[in-house]
Write a protein that binds this DNA or RNA. Structure first.
Lengths: 146, 146
DNA sequence: CTTTGTGCAAACGATTTGCAGGATG
DNA sequence: CATCCTGCAAATCGTTTGCACAAAG
């Protein structure tokens, strides 16, 4: 509600971003979903009821948000970038059959033996990507989408 | 040498692929390097001395090789697909500064607690992506490329 | 008011596709 | 000699850019 809206506006201001209806809408949309949408999916969603934004603006908003660390890009399949407003470290699961993506809590893979890496590599971040089939696609006989 | 060439030809035949000079060249090129080149890099490399292949053919060869499991696609950055003829499971390190990619041996991260995943997810494969700085870029003051 | 964002359409870069001729098994 | 591949150019698709106008601080 109103409360949450103000919260978002404040966050944007704190990051030094100008608050525009489009930027607000993009960020708000990303915060409200956890399916890691593509730029196009966000655009469609925003303009569902009434035209809110153009695609160029969605892309520019995403870049701005990415620039200040409020949004992350997620690369899990060919050809498209997906976006995520959950910026705390976490892993991803991707269903090879339906393409659905879901988060895996960071604690799930505690204790990665990073010190077994060859010396010389300075680690900044890491992430595990798991692929397989989600519940919904479990008994489907059809082959994987890719 | 000749020995190795025959080996490659045999592998392609075994997988049911027709052996063409272009396909051979693409696969041979991928086998000879470990830097996970893009399609364009492969094309450039092949045609360096004399024209061997066109880009459409490189893409089609990559798809054919991917289809029979001899080559894997690696997604580590926006906008481009990279390819890898090392099909045994392994992880990747990517330097955020120079973009270099190198393999991390599978055994490096033994014991991922996959059973801590939520029930319902059927795991097919997984992979760790590590990002940071490689030795060469260690003392560079310049900011990361991305 | 000065700066930055928006929208449109054109521009781009990576990958795909249609098709005619050529090579493979 | 039937099938599949190659090369070329045109087509696609996601994303970016240039620019005139509008909105934010």
């Amino acid at each position: 509600m109103q409360e949450q809206a103000n919260q978002i506006i404040q966050t944007l201001k704190d990051k030094g971003l100008r608050v525009t209806p489009q930027r607000f809408a993009v960020y708000n949309n990303l915060l409200s979903r956890s399916d890691h949408p593509t730029a196009e999916q966000i655009l469609t969603d925003l303009n569902q009821a009434a035209p809110i934004s153009s695609q160029a603006t969605v892309y520019s908003a995403l870049q701005a948000l990415r620039g200040v660390g409020l949004v992350r890009e997620v690369l899990l399949e060919e050809g498209v970038s997906r976006y995520d407003a959950k910026v705390v470290p976490h892993h991803h699961f991707r269903c090879q059959h339906c393409g659905a993506i879901e988060d895996i809590a960071w604690e799930t893979f505690r204790s990665l033996q990073l010190h077994h890496l060859r010396p010389g590599l300075q680690v900044e971040r890491y992430e595990v990507t798991v692929e397989g089939r989600c519940d919904r696609c479990q008994d489907t006989l059809e082959p994987d989408a890719e």
